[in-house]
Design a protein around this nucleic acid. Structure first.
Length: 615
DNA sequence: TTAGGGTTAG
């Protein structure tokens, strides 16, 4: 097909490809002009199209050629809209659309025009322009075109306007598979995964793309288990699995922190010779990072032939999460040496890396470089990282003045970072201020109450602890239920705080007793502070030993053979007592325990934790 | 001679 198309082109135009430079283009252009070839509208159209599409750097050259052309064809103008819709200048599509409408040779836009124009509106995320384009579609009678309709569904989904997606979809008398799949994705991305499911179930025929769309929808909305189940159903149906399916599967494994299933997915890719594209490689890196396996993360990373900014950022994020700040910063230097330009996401990993190793000066330098060197405007997340950076280093006053000088309204997370620092460095007054600010911003932010109460408790000001508790109850603030997940033989086991429903709870209970006995032998005294702020379950149970990660560890000790690390994923931050106990268990039982909490990994080994007791 | 649905990092 490609061959035929290429033969259809003028032989000189066939020389233009993605590596063609501007001087080479000028030569080709001069050659065609000298032979009068460009007088043929077909050759002219092919020429501007190739110039604009083959190498995005040359779009400007096509713009200039078109500027000198008295009556460009619809094909040439459509090609320019198409090229700009994919470029960094999608707004120029509207200029060319206007050129069509105002053309001296009375051109009329066709279905191709609208298809490309809709893509441009999607690209620039401009709902007003999108609605105008939609009106023009109707005015010119192209609303029945399936290419245009699916484009509109995608566009409205990007705008988050699910109602508009529905209107378009419901207006199609007999939507084809492509439109149904576009609608399925639109629903899921706008938060209605149930309707997406309904559409999927109603499909009379489903191809690999439809299956991939449904799996991706589950993975993206956090229904990771469901995504994996659907993937297995897809295999059972004999539908071809490709690299797109595997990206979503890996993303689900990352979310679950399920290393066993992630490893299985990796071996599936190898066994089935699935092409490891940049995207798939990045998903593998992300999976290993989020499962705390930095060794395989680096193995995949260095094994990749091509790496983009996503690949580097994923690897850096994985290292930072595991507390390997130095390695993360080394990778950052290497990335820049390789000519990859960092973006705002990369910088978050850089700042977090500085955080975990306590490099305040270096962190501030990178923060400054964002705008100064890379022209990236720091966002709330970056400011939050700097507050954390100061706070962890004990520079609480500096953290406070940094927040006060932020160019935008600080968000709850920035104050939260300060509050955490105040708790650790025992700065009650600033802590109170931070907590008040958080509650002002988010009245039901349970973390603020918990940290504040914790701080009072450590300071032994019990009346204030009671006040905070009362405030929480009056305002209906509830701490989310603690949950730890661990995997044994590919099976996920969930443990909720105070939950005794696990079928092996009797054995777990015996192991908890054994842990308790051995902890006492080494002189462990329960750190009772955390119990003070758990106004819900844990207090009622009256025992810190019901915290979900302790139960999960006990289960790990009895169900995983010696030498196998115990890997746990927790939905909240690890509490002080669990952290102390886990360190001790790792020493007493000689087990490596890896806990992923809400923020990072804690690698417990030989009585120590990789976070250095700062989290 | 040009088009539509599914995939990656905070």
């Amino acid at each position: 097909m490609t061959c035929l198309r290429r033969i259809a082109k003028h032989p000189t135009i066939c020389l233009i490809d993605s590596s063609t430079t501007l001087p080479e283009l000028k030569q080709i252009h001069a050659h065609l002009l000298a032979r009068g070839a460009l007088r043929d509208p077909l050759v002219f159209g092919q020429f501007v199209t190739s110039v604009a599409l083959e190498n995005p750097c040359n779009i400007g050259y096509s713009d200039r050629i078109l500027g000198h052309c008295e009556a460009p064809s619809l094909f040439a103008l459509n090609s320019m809209i198409r090229a700009h819709s994919k470029s960094s200048t999608p707004e120029l599509c509207f200029y060319y659309y206007r050129e069509i409408l105002d053309s001296e040779n009375r051109l009329l836009p066709d279905n191709y025009t609208f298809n490309f124009l809709i893509r441009a509106c999607t690209q620039i995320l401009e709902p007003t322009a999108g609605h105008c384009a939609h009106s023009s579609v109707i005015k010119h009678g192209f609303h029945g075109d399936p290419h245009v309709e699916s484009g509109l569904i995608r566009m409205y989904a990007e705008f988050g306007q699910l109602g508009c997606c529905r209107k378009v979809f419901n207006g199609i008398p007999d939507p084809d598979l492509v439109c149904r799949t576009a609608m399925l994705t639109a629903c899921a991305s706008c938060g209605d995964v149930r309707f997406a499911e309904e559409l999927f179930n109603e499909m009379a025929e489903r191809d690999d793309v439809a299956w991939n769309a449904m799996i991706a929808s589950y993975a993206q909305c956090g229904k990771s288990k469901r995504a994996l189940e659907l993937f297995h159903a897809m295999q059972m149906e004999g539908v071809t699995v490709n690299e797109v399916s595997m990206v979503s599967v890996l993303s689900a494994c990352s979310h679950l922190g399920s290393l066993d299933q992630g490893r299985w997915a990796h071996s599936y890719i190898t066994r089935n010779k699935i092409r490891v594209t940049v995207t798939l490689g990045t998903a593998l890196i992300d999976m290993y990072g989020k499962c705390g396996d930095t060794e395989h993360l680096m193995e995949v990373f260095w094994g990749m032939k091509e790496r983009n900014v996503y690949t580097w950022s994923s690897a850096m994020n994985g290292l930072a999460m595991s507390g390997m700040g130095r390695q993360c910063l080394d990778l950052y230097s290497q990335m820049k040496r390789d000519g990859i330009v960092p973006n705002k996401v990369t910088l978050i990993s850089v700042l977090r890396a500085c955080n975990v190793v306590g490099f305040v000066e270096e962190g501030l330098r990178h923060f400054e470089s964002m705008k100064g060197t890379y022209g990236i405007e720091p966002e709330l997340e970056h400011y939050g990282c700097v507050v954390d950076l100061y706070g962890r280093a004990g520079l609480v006053d500096e953290a406070l003045s940094f927040i006060s000088e932020m160019p935008m309204e600080p968000h709850a997370a920035a104050w939260g970072a300060l509050l955490n620092a105040c708790r650790i460095h025992k700065k009650i007054e600033i802590g109170k201020l931070a907590a008040r600010k958080i509650v002002e911003l988010e009245a039901k932010h349970h973390g603020a109450y918990v940290l504040l109460s914790n701080m009072y408790a450590e300071n032994k000001t019990w009346e204030s602890v009671d006040d905070v508790r009362r405030m929480m109850k009056n305002r209906g603030v509830k701490k989310p239920r603690g949950c730890s997940v661990m995997e044994v033989d590919g099976q996920l086991h969930e443990f909720f705080v105070g939950d005794i429903s696990h079928p092996m709870y009797d054995e777990i209970s015996v192991m908890l007793g054994e842990i308790s006995r051995r902890l006492k032998l080494v002189g462990y005294v329960a750190n009772m502070d955390p119990i003070l702020f758990d106004v819900e379950d844990e207090e009622k149970e009256g025992s810190l030993f019901l915290h979900s990660e302790k139960v999960a560890i006990a289960f790990g000790l009895i169900s995983l053979k010696q030498g196998t690390p115990i890997r746990i994923v927790k939905n909240l931050r690890v509490c002080l007592d669990c952290h102390d106990v886990t360190k001790l268990i790792s020493g007493i039982f000689g087990r490596e325990i890896i806990v992923r909490d809400r923020n990072r990994f804690h690698h417990f080994k030989g009585g120590e934790c990789s976070c250095g007791d700062y989290w």
